[in-house]
Design a protein around this nucleic acid. Structure first.
Lengths: 324, 324
DNA sequence: CTGTTAGCGCTTTCAA
DNA sequence: TTGAAAGCGCTAACAG
C-alpha cells in the first residue's frame, strides 16, 4: 500500500496524508480529517516506503556500527541500539572483515559509529571521510570526533591493584598495538609502574589479538620469562580466559603462582575459574554516548573527542592475590 | 556526484552510464565509450544512490539477520555475512529486544534471516509475513522455510558419549522451552536415554536461558537432586560455563564428580577449566546456507525446511570422564 | 551503438 | 484547511 492508496481510502490528497502521518506540528487539519486519515492508514496497514522517503529527504534514519568483533562489542552495541531507537533511528551492526564495507553502507545510513582504528584497517579512514562518523572505543584521525572510556586510567587501576597486593614483577598482555585502545592501556600500565617504582621489563609485555588465542600466546610468553611476572594485567576478558588456560597447562596456578586481572567486565568474567578480577568500564554507556554524539553531528553540532564520564572501576574477584 | 555528473564528464547520456556501471551483460557499447565512462566514474569517485536505485528496482540488495543474542549467534552471523557479500548483498545484524523491529527493517532489506522462534517472540511472525523470511537455527511456522542443524542428533550424541563413559544418571540443562532448538535437543536427550535404558528423572532436567546465568541456575538445581546426575548435557557453551561455575562453588569437581558436555563448539570451549567437551555443529555453514536459501526465495524458488548436511560431532576434551 | 522518456513513492513548497 | 505539482537519482523500455 502506498501513500496514495491511503489518500484514496480517506478521500483526501496524498500530501495531506503525508503531513498528518509525519506529525507535522505547524499544520492545520480538521480533527475529523486527521481521524479519517489515521483510520485509513491503520486499516490498510500502511508502511511508508523507506527508499522513497530517503530519496526525497536525503536521510535514511539509520546509523551503522562498524565493529571489529561482535563478541567484544556486544555491550557497546546494546547501548547504542537502545539510544538509537529512542531517537527514532535504526542501528545496523556490521562486522569487519568486509571487502568493501563502504560500498555496502553508503546511502543506507546517515552516519556511522566506527569501532576500528585507522591503523588497524586503513580503509576506515575513507569511511570516516565519506560519511558523518564518530569513533567509538577508538580515537579517530584529527577532525573526526570520538567517544572512549578512560583506558589509561583503567590500566593504571589494574596495576595499582596488583601493587597494593604486593606484586613487584608485573606483566602486561595487551591488544594489538595498532589499536589505540591498546596503546592507552599500555600507557596506563607504564605510568603506574613508574609511579610505584616497579621494575620494567620488556619480556613482561606482549601484544596480541583481543581474544583467547592472543591471551594464550601472551601468557605462554610471559610465564617463560626469567624471572617471570607474579601479576599480569590482561587488557581484555577473552584474552584473560586464554591467559588462564595457558597458565593452567603450564602448571602455573592462578592466583597462587600468578595473579591475573582482566579489562572490560564482560558477563563471562564472574563465571570463570577462578572468577576474574577486572576493570569495569562503562561499555553500554559508551555506546549510548556515541550515538548521541553522532546524532548531534548530523544536526550540525561539532563536538570533538569525549571521554565517558563514568570512571573505570576495579572489580575484585578471585584471580588476584598477594604474590607467592 | 550523481549519475548525470558522470555522464556529463564522459560526454554520454546517463542511461549509458547506468548500463555500463551495472555491468549489463547483453549490452553493446563501444569499448572506447565504456572506457570513458568507467574512467569518469572513478575520477569522480561515483557511488550510486542506494535509495534511488531501490526506489526504481524495488530491491535493496541488503538482508537482515535477527538474532536473539549476538554472542551466541556470532559464528552464524559470520557465515551469513560472508555468503551475503559474495552474492553482492549487505548483511545487517539486528539484536532482538527491539520495540518495533519491523518498522526499522521494513523497506531497508529485501528479506530477513530470523533466529528467534515465534513462541519466543510472537512478533517475529509478523515479520515473517511482512517480508521474505527464512528462519535460521529455529523452525518457523508452516510455510516459512528454515535452515537448522540436526539438534536432536546432537543431543543424542551428547548423551551417548556420557553413556559410553559409563554414566547411568544423566541430566540435562536445556535452553528455554519456547525455543524449538531447545525442544529438539531435549528430544535427542530423551531418545538416547530411552534407547540405552537409562533412568529418567524430571529432577534432572532444567530449562533456562542460553547463557551463563541459565546454566548456573540449572546446575545449582540438578546438583541438589538426590540422587544427583553424574553427567550433565548442557545445551549451550555459555550455559556450560555457568554450570561449571555453579559446580565449583558447591565443591563438586568436574569431571571427577560430575561430567559436563556442552553444545555448539564456540571459541571459549577449549579454553575453559577444564576444557569443555562439546558437540560441534556447523554454525557458520548454517549461516551460509540460510543466506543461500533466502536468496533463492527472493528469486522465487521455494525450498522448504533444510537441515544442514554437516552432521554434529563430538569433540572430547577434559570435562567428561567416567562417573565416580 | 546511444539517447529519450517515463516513473518508482514520497515530501514540500505554493496556490487555491 | 486542502490540493496541485515538481522533483529527489536512478533504471528500463523504446526509439533513433
Amino acid at each position: 500500500v502506498r501513500l496514495r492508496d491511503v489518500a484514496a481510502e480517506a478521500g483526501v490528497d496524498a500530501s495531506v496524508v503525508s503531513r498528518v502521518l509525519s506529525g507535522d506540528a505547524r499544520l492545520s487539519v480538521r480533527a475529523e480529517t486527521r481521524e479519517r486519515v489515521l483510520d485509513a492508514a491503520t486499516r490498510l496497514d500502511y508502511r511508508p516506503n523507506a527508499a522513497a522517503r530517503t530519496l526525497k529527504t536525503t536521510r535514511t534514519m539509520a546509523i551503522g556500527l562498524l565493529a571489529p568483533d561482535v563478541i567484544n562489542y556486544a555491550p557497546i552495541a546494546k547501548g547504542a541500539d537502545e539510544r538509537a531507537r529512542e531517537a527514532g533511528y535504526t542501528l545496523f551492526v556490521a562486522q569487519d572483515g568486509a571487502s568493501d564495507l563502504l560500498a555496502g553502507m553508503h546511502g543506507r545510513i546517515d552516519g556511522v559509529l566506527i569501532g576500528i582504528g585507522i591503523e588497524e584497517r586503513p580503509r576506515v579512514r575513507d569511511i570516516s571521510r565519506a560519511l558523518p562518523a564518530v569513533f567509538v572505543n577508538r580515537r579517530g584521525p584529527a577532525g573526526v570526533p570520538s567517544v572512549t572510556v578512560d583506558d589509561e586510567l583503567g590500566g593504571t587501576l589494574a596495576v595499582r591493584h596488583l601493587v597494593d597486593l604486593g606484586h613487584r614483577r608485573i606483566g602486561h598482555i595487551g591488544g594489538p598495538l595498532e589499536a589505540d585502545t591498546a596503546k592507552r592501556r599500555l600507557r596506563g600500565y607504564l605510568v603506574a609502574l613508574a609511579a610505584t617504582g616497579r621494575e620494567m621489563n620488556s619480556d613482561w609485555i606482549f601484544h596480541a589479538s583481543f581474544d583467547e588465542t592472543g591471551g594464550h600466546a601472551g601468557a605462554a610468553r610471559l610465564l617463560a620469562a626469567d624471572p617471570r611476572p607474579t601479576g599480569i594485567f590482561v587488557s581484555n576478558v577473552r584474552a584473560a580466559i586464554g591467559a588462564m588456560a595457558a597458565a593452567r597447562s603450564l602448571g602455573v596456578r592462578v592466583p597462587d603462582d600468578v595473579s591475573i586481572i582482566g579489562f572490560d567486565d564482560t558477563t563471562f568474567a564472574a563465571y570463570l575459574d577462578p572468577p576474574l578480577t577486572t576493570i569495569r568500564t562503562a561499555l553500554a554507556e559508551m555506546g549510548r554516548q556515541a550515538v548521541d554524539h553522532l546524532l548531534a553531528l548530523l544536526r550540525g553540532t561539532e563536538l570533538g573527542d569525549v571521554v565517558v564520564g563514568a570512571v573505570p572501576e576495579l572489580v575484585v574477584r578471585a584471580s588476584t592475590a598477594p604474590p607467592p
